[in-house]
């Protein structure tokens, strides 16, 4: 399978009160099209930073990142947001829905910004996406009255608005209870089965039930990179329910 995301020798440094802090340290990673990757690690390990690199939210201090055959360092800043809106669907821990727009309008918003979906098809598509996350009867409601799980489902539907090939999710279940977490992970799994490349950052091991591949990060470096089937096989043998890398 072709690599859809290629990260080559990427480092990221921050300066806080004149002191240098390395969030990523010479990371290299290839992600194939159709992959379902989980990035696991403790707080401060650099996993969110790595995700931000992939989405273009943040720029690398060194190295090269290629996403969908596009070198992110070569895109003009003025074009990057639209490029991201078309090629990547982002899902956040705190949902980041627009509170003054209805659920349907939140899903329409990326289509209105990027203009890739023809105008006459947008509402129909938005309704279909809302139906796919089982909220079709609540399109005219505002996010404020939804539960956390419902909000995240809407956020996922929004991420799919422009039909991007890649979905990046940063701690999508961080604010959710266990049952809802499972529902969300199942949703991501279904999307992956439909051909989407999924990358999820989490500190919850349960993601590995659903992901195909998992990398572990520590202090800005990848310390482990394994395919999850191998982990599950090992877990089964040890009769362990939880999976870890």
């Amino acid at each position: 399978m072709q690599n859809i995301i290629v990260i080559e020798s990427v480092s990221k440094n921050y300066f806080i009160e004149s002191r240098k802090f390395s969030a990523l340290n010479n990371i290299s990673l290839n992600i194939e099209q159709g992959d379902f990757l989980s990035i696991i690690g403790k707080s401060g390990s650099g996993k969110s930073t790595l995700l931000n690199m992939m989405s273009g939210i943040d720029k690398a201090s060194r190295g090269k990142i290629t996403v969908a055959s596009v070198d992110l360092s070569k895109i003009k800043t003025s074009d990057l947001d639209r490029w991201r809106g078309i090629n990547i669907g982002l899902v956040f821990q705190f949902f980041q829905l627009i509170p003054t727009l209805t659920l349907l309008e939140n899903i329409l918003l990326p289509m209105d910004f990027c203009g890739v979906i023809p105008r006459e098809n947008r509402i129909k598509r938005a309704r279909e996406l809302l139906a796919s996350v089982h909220l079709s009867d609540r399109g005219n409601q505002f996010p404020g009255i939804l539960s956390g799980g419902e909000k995240q489902r809407v956020a996922i539907a929004r991420a799919l608005a422009n039909d991007p090939a890649i979905i990046l999710a940063d701690e999508p279940t961080g604010n959710l209870d266990s049952a809802t977490t499972e529902t969300i992970y199942q949703l991501f799994q279904q999307l992956n089965q439909l051909g989407k490349t999924i990358v999820i950052v989490s500190h919850d091991d349960r993601i590995n039930y659903y992901a195909k591949r998992s990398i572990k990060m520590l202090d800005g470096q990848i310390v482990n990179d394994r395919y999850v089937e191998a982990i599950k096989e090992t877990s089964k043998k040890n009769d362990k329910v939880s999976v870890h890398v």
Binding site: I57, S78, D81, R82, Q96, P110, A159, A161, N162
Partner: peptide, 16 residues
Amino acid sequence: LPQIGAMKSIGAKPMQ
């Protein structure tokens, strides 16, 4: 500001 970030993440250009 968070909403602005969210809109930028879903493709809004600065001019939009």
